[in-house]
């Protein structure tokens, strides 16, 4: 079970109208590892992330060329079932956003969407997902209370539980800790480390220490190109590209 490639990007180009956000991205993302995407604002790392679950398509005027493969199956084909894709590839966003319903309903939302109606099955999924997201102990007594009453850090773990509830294989995280306080961030990073056993995680982060702490691999994006991609310990200690070195030593960005 070593070195299985979960996600493969080949010649991926993304355009927003006339603006080209990504240039020929070739990238292999390993299964059951944490891969961090770093780079300054507007470098294309979030665009890349959102290409994996085809969330980019929601933007008016977006055009995508090249291909992404998950488990060697192309993502950008006419007959690809986007619902199945997004079920397989979950996503956690920057701003923790619990839906305005109860904690229970938040976690049950995905399974319900995908047709699970049985109360007992739902109960099990909710409990399992909240446990996996390290939130169960804090909310077990108030599953029926509004989720919007949770703290930011708790909401972000709830969002992760909500993602886990649809049983994904890949979890994309778009700066998941940028709106959290240091304690919540630490808890989130612990959680990411635990989730690695069962999931392939791709995380976009502005925080290089965070990338160094949580990831196995790191990709450095600049101006829509993947400049350098390597094992995290290599990239941070021995950057090969001058621009990577400048970035991680804080000379720009």
């Amino acid at each position: 079970m070593k070195n299985i490639i979960k996600i493969k990007s080949r010649g991926l180009k993304v355009f927003y109208g006339n603006f080209q956000a990504l240039y020929d991205i070739d990238m292999d993302i390993e299964s059951n590892k944490v891969t961090a995407l770093i780079g300054p604002s507007g470098c294309g790392k979030s665009t890349f992330l959102r290409s994996i679950n085809r969330l980019n398509e929601l933007i008016d005027g977006v055009r995508i060329e090249g291909q992404i493969y998950i488990d060697d199956k192309p993502v950008y084909e006419k007959d690809v079932d986007v619902v199945a894709l997004r079920k397989k590839v979950g996503m956690v966003f920057q701003k923790p956003s619990a839906f305005p319903m109860s904690i229970y309903e938040n976690v049950a939302y995905g399974p319900r969407i995908h047709g699970i109606k049985d109360k007992r099955t739902l109960d099990e999924i909710v409990e399992k997902s909240l446990k996996a997201a390290n939130l169960w102990d804090e909310v077990r007594d108030r599953l029926k209370s509004p989720a919007t009453g949770l703290s930011g850090g708790q909401q972000q773990r709830l969002v992760i539980a909500r993602v886990l509830a649809v049983n994904p294989e890949v979890i994309l995280m778009d700066e998941p800790a940028s709106a959290l306080d240091p304690v919540s961030t630490a808890r989130l990073e612990e959680l990411i480390a635990e989730l690695r056993t069962d999931y392939t995680i791709v995380i976009v982060t502005h925080n290089m220490q965070q990338a160094a702490r949580v990831s196995d691999y790191t990709g450095f994006f600049l101006n829509g190109r993947l400049v350098e991609y390597n094992r995290t310990d290599e990239l941070f200690v021995n950057p090969r590209d001058k621009r990577t070195e400048d970035y991680i030593t804080g000379r720009f960005g």
């Binding site: 969330l55 979950g90 996503m91 966003f93 701003k95 956003s97 839906f99 995905g110 995908h114």
Partner: peptide, 15 residues
């Protein structure tokens, strides 16, 4: 209605 609600829901596979 916050855009995030829609994104989160769609990303969970909802239509």
């Amino acid at each position: 209605v916050p855009r995030e609600y829609r994104e989160n829901s769609l990303a969970l596979g909802a239509g």
